[in-house]
Design a protein around this nucleic acid. Sequence first.
DNA 1: CTCGTCTCATCGTCAGACAATCTCCCGAGG
DNA 2: CCTCGGGAGATTGTCTGACGATGAGACGAG
Lengths: 226, 226
Amino acid sequence: MSAGQFQLGPSSLTDALYESVRSRIISGDIAPGEKLTEQRIADDYRVARPTAKACLERLTALGLLRRSAHKTAVVPELDEVDITDLFFTREMFECTAADRLAQARTVPEAARKAQTAIESAVRAKAFDDQVVADIEFHWALINAVDSPRLSRVYEMVSGEVHLTMGQFKAHRRTAPSTVAAEHALILKAIEDGDRAAAREQMAHHLQQARDRVLAQVVASREEAPA
Amino acid sequence: MSAGQFQLGPSSLTDALYESVRSRIISGDIAPGEKLTEQRIADDYRVARPTAKACLERLTALGLLRRSAHKTAVVPELDEVDITDLFFTREMFECTAADRLAQARTVPEAARKAQTAIESAVRAKAFDDQVVADIEFHWALINAVDSPRLSRVYEMVSGEVHLTMGQFKAHRRTAPSTVAAEHALILKAIEDGDRAAAREQMAHHLQQARDRVLAQVVASREEAPA
DNA sequence: CTCGTCTCATCGTCAGACAATCTCCCGAGG
DNA sequence: CCTCGGGAGATTGTCTGACGATGAGACGAG
């Protein structure tokens, strides 16, 4: 009985559950501030509570949920301090990656593909697609470094990056297609093998992105002072 | 009955279990290559298997264990590729931290304390203490940046750093007290607010450390060709 | 209106069970 | 003698069901 324990899928049930909950959080289907009990997951997905528990623990480790002992997990709402810290950490990762790639003059194919995807999403005014492609672009650079540990630790901030994007895309009014231009500069620097420029363009891009996000946080707070 | 479920300690049983197993792996009490079944943990510590399982999963996430689906977890033996990658990642973290601290001209007190601890351990020829203090030194710099995310992700490599130290300290024959001297240069650069120098000294120190570890790996392999 | 207590929701952990999967040894065949 | 396939045991993934502990909010006393 009990719909559980088919593991026909490519990965185990646990992984599928994790992926599903993760995407629901990232997409905003489960809104920031919303509580997520173990029982709710268990009921929603017809799994046992321990399975749901493990899933919540994984998400907590990635920063997609926050909880302390005996308290219910909630989807965090990132404030200015969180966002500043998050982008600081991103900058460390991504500037290092840009430097490395410039050193090797390796422009990953995946990054180019993501770049064209961004451009077409901008033309189509498909903001969601643009966000997805943007994240893919950054992931492509990280993965191209070919350092398992770098990719592993980047995953720990990637979830929160998604959160910032999803959290505020509803409020988005300016649609800066400058993102694509900034990406192009980064790729150019990598192509030229100019390490310093690659670092700098990446840092600049991330600071711009951070400021855009911060501006939205402030704006959304002012229009909804709780 | 069943000795479990007293949670007198400061943290929960799960945390205590995790800490204990972690320290046993790091100290080499559980040797690299050794298999660690869920049942063994459960028996050793008189906890239920699910509790042991959760513990192993946490350690796996930190790189202190390796496992794939349906296979028994083992303490990894880091090879040259792993160590190179690990130090590359460390360099990213720690150079960023050194840069930041130099920018603020903040020399953390904890780092100074660790530094004197290293010196006295060197004088006492207490190699184990030296390793512990060395790790504390590096942690102190990371934590002084006061970035929750930086500290969180550093934890993901810190475990493996411990492993490299513990894994090879048995084979150690040269006792390079140059470590303390290199640390002093880093602190000096931070004190002077010289960001470039801080980065460079840190990078240099880590490259030295990496080469020392790599040399030991090669040496230990040659003397024990399995 | 404030404060302490009490109940309920939720979590941490346990025990025991079953199916799926992996490992390893051992015998059949070349 | 070596290689290869098959089965028994070991190990994991997940389930069900249960108990005590902890935290949060309601409810009544002062």
